[in-house]
């Protein structure tokens, strides 16, 4: 391969970008889901008790 560094650089950039974007999205989704579940539980529990007058 005559231009190996150029090819490696292109594919490397693509791999890094794909990894950063997909991991970022997956972690964000995971964090938000956990947070939302926790919030909804407390919310529902509080909803059962009468509100303060």
């Amino acid at each position: 391969m005559t231009h190996l560094p150029y090819i490696v650089a292109s594919y490397g950039l693509a791999a890094i970008m794909a990894l950063v974007l997909s991991l970022g999205a997956a972690l964000r989704l995971k964090r938000d889901r956990a947070r939302l579940t926790a919030l909804e539980q407390t919310h529902n529990r509080n909803a059962g008790t009468p509100l303060t007058p």
């Binding site: 974007l21 997909s22 999205a25 997956a26 964000r28 989704l29 938000d32 889901r33 947070r35 939302l36 919030l39 909804e40 407390t42 919310h43 509080n46 909803a47 509100l51």
Partner: peptide, 24 residues
Amino acid sequence: IVVARTRAAVMESRIRALLSSPRR
């Protein structure tokens, strides 16, 4: 990636709504 990020964004809006809800 766009679908995953948009789902996260919807969840974040819902979290904000719950946090500002007086029922909490």
